[in-house]
């Protein structure tokens, strides 16, 4: 477990982050796959638009929070329900191998794609020693 680059956090801690006024918060399903440059994370966030998506990295924790505002006519009356509508929240622990400064993300048709590039191994720097 310790060598995982991205650790998927437990969900109970996340519930407390959600604003209390919003009753339903879901854990979105995700995929994580490796590429030659690092990792890519995909999360299903149907109904989330760019303006209502918060993606942040604090210390080693990557948090995504997508707010869903149902876009319905005022007179719409629910007559058949098979799924509940709510916001999406999930957190991940990033290892030090992820280059935090180069994390990039895009949102397309309700899917968030976060690119987590691996930190480039820095060349050893030679330190000049002077003799007094």
């Amino acid at each position: 477990m310790s060598n995982e680059i991205v650790k998927v956090m437990q969900t109970d801690a996340e519930q407390s982050i959600a604003p209390a006024a919003d009753p339903v918060v879901f854990t979105p399903p995700i995929d994580i796959f490796e590429t030659p440059d690092g990792l890519v994370l995909l999360a299903d966030l149907p109904g989330v638009i760019l303006e209502s998506l918060e993606l942040q990295v604090q210390d080693n924790k990557l948090t995504l929070f997508g707010k869903v505002k149902p876009d319905l006519p005022a007179d719409a009356r629910l007559i058949h329900q098979e799924y509940a509508v709510g916001h999406f929240l999930r957190s991940f622990i990033l290892s030090d191998e992820v280059d935090h400064d180069r994390i990039a993300a895009k949102l397309n048709q309700g899917v968030l794609e976060v690119v987590l590039p691996q930190l480039r191994k820095s060349e050893p720097r030679r330190i000049q020693i002077t003799v007094e």
Binding site: L72, P73, D75, A76, R77, L78, I79, H80, Q81, E82, Y83, V85
Partner: peptide, 11 residues
């Protein structure tokens, strides 16, 4: 699916 009733039909 969720189905809503609106003025002129269903959504």
């Amino acid at each position: 699916v969720n189905v809503y009733e609106v003025t002129d039909g269903l959504l």
